[in-house]
């Protein structure tokens, strides 16, 4: 039990996918201007990440490893993730049309979010079992959401703050991201994984 808890804590705080592994920076910078959209974006990414890591674990374990086809891992994971994203998009368009419109182009762009490919690849590399893989995916998604929402809230605050003119916009965002990454280094030592 503690093992599973450790996986979650480790991937949310210590090995945070965005701030420590520097994956998934495109939505981190792109969708963090408004808190509302960043919340829905993290929800969509969380779903895709969890389902994607489970399905790619199944494919990896039952199809690729038994036939010694590990070299096909990357390409088959890409195909699977693209399919999961496509499916999510269809479900969302049908059931949550407003959310679908708000997310717009960012929804299909989850396909190219490297965090979503990175987590299944790390799963395979660390030879997790199914439950561990699912928790790893979920934890990665939680970590991603946490950081994205924190960052979006910070950026919303900056909009009204009295900041030097040269620093406004992307420059300040980059610096903030760097500082956040530094502060997340404080979590090192929380786990032994």
């Amino acid at each position: 039990m503690t093992e599973y808890l450790l996986i979650i804590i480790s991937v949310v705080l210590v090995n945070n996918i965005v701030l420590t592994k520097i994956l998934g920076l495109c939505p981190f910078m792109g969708v963090s201007k408004k808190l509302d959209t960043s919340v829905s974006m993290s929800a969509a990414t969380a779903f895709v990440l969890t389902v994607g890591s489970i399905t790619s674990w199944l494919v990896n374990y039952y199809l690729l490893i038994p036939y010694g086809l590990e070299y096909l891992r990357t390409i088959s994971f890409i195909v699977i993730i693209a399919a999961v994203v496509q499916f999510t998009e269809m479900v969302m368009e049908k059931n949550y049309p407003y959310l679908y419109r708000v997310l717009g182009i960012f929804l299909p762009l989850i396909t190219t979010n490297c965090a979503v490919l990175g987590i299944p690849l790390l799963n395979a590399q660390l030879s997790h079992n199914l439950l561990e893989a699912a928790l790893f995916g979920l934890g990665g998604a939680l970590g991603f959401s946490l950081v994205l929402i924190l960052f979006a809230s910070l950026r919303e605050k900056f909009e009204g703050a009295d900041t030097p003119e040269l620093m406004r916009g992307s420059a300040l965002a980059m610096l903030t991201a760097g500082l956040m990454s530094l502060s997340f280094m404080g979590f090192i030592g929380l786990d032994r994984l």
């Binding site: 494919v59 199809l63 690729l64 036939y67 086809l69 096909l72 390409i75 195909v79 699977i80 499916f87």
Partner: peptide, 16 residues
């Protein structure tokens, strides 16, 4: 390799 890649894509195609 060919068969497995094919089966993955066919399954995904059917589901989608």
């Amino acid at each position: 390799a060919i068969l497995i890649t094919l089966s993955i894509t066919i399954i995904i195609g059917v589901v989608l």
